[in-house]
Amino acid sequence: MFECALIQGELFRKLIASVQDLVQDGNFMCDANGISLQGMDSSHVALVALALKKEGFVEYRCDRDVTLGINFANLAKMLKCMGAKDRLSIRAQDEGDSASFVFESEDSSRVSNFELKLMQIDQEQLGVPETQYKAVIRMPSSEFQRICKDLSAIGDTVSISVTKEAVKFSVGGDIGSGDMSLRQSESGDVDGDDSEKVMIELEEPVQQNFALRYLNNFTKATALSKTVTLSLGTDMPLVTEYKMDNLGSIRYYLAPKIDE
């Protein structure tokens, strides 16, 4: 028997919205520690990895490891029926072919029950090694979203280059070219919210090219976190990570573009 409950069901809806345009369906792997999900886009350029810790749930019970094969578009249809402040409970039997989703309003005056049919998904799981990245940037997620959206009107590819002082996003296209640089926030600045700062940890300057179409897709997760962390290395995937306070994180890996 698998059972979990989230006070803010809305968070789960946002999570599904953050993966469903990239990956059609996937296996929720539930064990005693939490829930994880991994999926690749159809052209195998991007990988999304979701990790939810049991501590983030108000209730969590997993007697035996279960795999829930879920079609995200179908799940999203059911989650649409959930109220913005509803509590969400998910239940599944060990060998069942469906999972139940219960939405309950704050004052318990409205309870909705949905039963989602599960799928058998034969999906290869990739092993993502722990890597030391050459540059790690933490910045406001809304700022990253705006940059990706605005630059994609000019070109398809963004070049991200990082130095100790700044991170630069450059684009070129038929109409011309441009770049936007964000300077590392002053370390002595004790005023203001940390989540509004730009922090750069650098081992070595890096520059890599990425498809803006995918980065724009990743920014669907902006609603989940005030900040986003970008980790870059040479000739390795970019990691775009959104951390949710104590619930866990969603990470997107994007393979770089290289000169042929």
């Binding site: 690749m40 195998h44 350029v45 991007a46 799981q125 092993g127 994007l254 393979a255 573009k257 000169d259």
Partner: peptide, 14 residues
């Protein structure tokens, strides 16, 4: 010309 790499090249299959 810029060429997009396949991500499977970077990560091994479990």
């Amino acid at each position: 010309h810029i060429f997009q790499i396949n991500i499977v090249l970077f990560f091994s299959t479990k």
